[in-house]
Structures are given as structure tokens and as C-alpha cells.
């Protein structure tokens, strides 16, 4: 059964929110462990930006969820914790959406959940995502959903900075030492296989586009590719030759990594449910 407009709008919002939350979570793992104090601080700022975006989007998603009919509410999320709340007729909030959904209800792209590994992998992952996010938010500013449009406008300022930061680091590592070049090229080759998914139009993406809510992501792929080429050229790095792409995250089929992220992130809400913190 196709989703109603309202439900699709909610799922579309969750997809953007989950990307922000999961990438922000990954980046926040660096806090206190960075290679240079100034960069530790800069990266934590980025994590905070992602987290802020996620919160605005989850609040919006929760509002949309709470406005659904009770039948629709029951079909959307699977975890027992959420089902209990929904059956009791309780309204959901940003924390319920972040902390009580299981992995099979998360819609982030696989790239965002990939591990930090080292500075090279972290930078490459951010760069590939930031370049996408930059054009995505630029287009989302025109969304008919005024909340999404407002979040996009605010986020674009942050993402512009993120993209500058990650591009500069790609260049520094690529055009730095032999070791840094080898390391960042390896990271780029490895995470490249997760970039295709960002531009895949799922049923939710197509419906959101048709409703004037969403972004034509297939159309921003060329812009993304140009930006990536430009930075890689300056970084003296080679565009990865592999064209095989992983996918599934946007349709809730994840890598093994997400389960561990959630196990850690959701621990408090799971062990001590229904409390104010």
C-alpha cells in the first residue's frame, strides 16, 4: 500500500534527520581524541551542527507523526518500546524517534554510519557527504514544507563551512606527504562505494519530489561530481575507478555498524525507560 502524503513527508524528514544524527554521532566519537587540538574543536563543532539539524528535523517529524491517524501510527515503527507508547496514545518527541527506533526503521545512507577508522577515512567520509549535503540543502530551501525549507536554509550555512573544512583536509592530506596521500586515497577508494546511494531515488524520494516537498537528487549528482573532481584534482588524488555501489540504508537495510551505534546511543533510554533527563 503506498504511503499517504503525510506519511511520506514524515519518512522523508526522517531520512534527512537520520543522516544528520548518525553522521553527527560518528563525528562526535572524535571529541577529545583529535590529532590537533584546534581540529578536535572544529570537528566537535561540526558534530554539534549535525546534531542541531537532527533535532529540528526530529521535532518536525514528531509533530507530523502525532497528527497521523491512530491506524497509521501503528504501522510505521516496529520497536516494542515505541509500540507501547503508541498504543498508550502518548505523543512522540525528538528523543523517542532517536532513541527508541531500531535499526530497521532508520533511513540514513550507509555512508554516514561507516566507522571513523582514522583521520583519513573520517575526512573522506565527511567530504563525500558534505559535497552532497551542500547541494541537497541548497535545493531543499525551495521545499513546499516550510519547516524543511527553513532547516535547509539554516543548515546550508553550516554545511558550507563543513564542505570547506573537509575539502581543505582532502587537499592537505592528498598533497601532503607520501603517507598521507596513500592513506587518504585508500579511504576515498573504500568509502567511494557508498556514494551511489546518496543519489538513488527511492519510492519516498520520488513521492516527496512529486509533492513538491523533496529534492531531485538525481539532478544534483552532476554538481556533486564536478565539485568532487575539482577537489580531488587539487588534492592530486585519483577518482576511484570502482563503480560498484552499496545501497540499502535509505530503505532501512543497514550495515552491521548501525546496530552498534544504536546499542551505545540508546543505552540509557533502554535501561531506564520513561524518565526525564
Amino acid at each position: 500500500m503506498p504511503n499517504s502524503k503525510q506519511m511520506n513527508q514524515l519518512l522523508y524528514t526522517l531520512q534527512i534527520a537520520d543522516n544528520a544524527l548518525i553522521l553527527g554521532h560518528r563525528i562526535s566519537e572524535w571529541c577529545g581524541h583529535g590529532p590537533i587540538l584546534e581540529q578536535d574543536i572544529a570537528l566537535t563543532n561540526t558534530a554539534l551542527d549535525h546534531l542541531g539539524q537532527a533535532r529540528s528535523l526530529y521535532q518536525h517529524a514528531a509533530d507530523m507523526f502525532n497528527a497521523l491517524s491512530s491506524d497509521n501510527k501503528k504501522t510505521l515503527f516496529t520497536s516494542t518500546a515505541l509500540q507501547n507508547k503508541i498504543n498508550k496514545g502518548e505523543a512522540l518527541d525528538e528523543d523517542d524517534l532517536a532513541y527508541l527506533r531500531d535499526g530497521w526503521d532508520f533511513r540514513n545512507v550507509l555512508l554516514t554510519e561507516q566507522p571513523n577508522k582514522d583521520w583519513g577515512y573520517t575526512v573522506a567520509r565527511s567530504f563525500l557527504y558534505d559535497a552532497f549535503s551542500f547541494y541537497f540543502y541548497a535545493a531543499l530551501q525551495k521545499s513546499k514544507d516550510t519547516v524543511l525549507a527553513a532547516v535547509a536554509e539554516k543548515s546550508l550555512k553550516e554545511v558550507t563551512y563543513h564542505l570547506r573544512w573537509s575539502s581543505e583536509w582532502m587537499i592537505r592530506l592528498g598533497d601532503g606527504t607520501e603517507e598521507s596521500k596513500t592513506r587518504v586515497q585508500e579511504a576515498l577508494d573504500s568509502y567511494w562505494a557508498y556514494t551511489g546511494e546518496m543519489f538513488e531515488m527511492t519510492a519516498v524520494d520520488k513521492a516527496a519530489l512529486a509533492d513538491g516537498i523533496g529534492v531531485d537528487i538525481a539532478a544534483i549528482k552532476t554538481l556533486w561530481q564536478e565539485r568532487v573532481n575539482m577537489v580531488l584534482e587539487e588534492a592530486t588524488l585519483i577518482l576511484p575507478a570502482n563503480t560498484w555501489m552499496h545501497s540499502g540504508g535509505k530503505e532501512c537495510r543497514h550495515s552491521e555498524h548501525l546496530g552498534y551505534i544504536l546499542a551505545e546511543m540508546q543505552f540509557m533510554q533502554r535501561a531506564y525507560p520513561d524518565m526525564e533527563w
Binding site: 590529532p35 590537533i36 583521520w119 601532503g176 606527504t177 603517507e179 598521507s180
Partner: peptide, 12 residues
């Protein structure tokens, strides 16, 4: 772990 990163930044 950050040594190679700092070296790269310096070299660049």
C-alpha cells in the same frame, strides 16, 4: 595516531 596528520599539514 595524529603524527602523520600533523606531518601532512606541515608538508602541505
Amino acid at each position: 595516531d595524529g603524527a602523520w596528520v600533523r606531518d601532512a599539514a606541515m608538508a602541505h
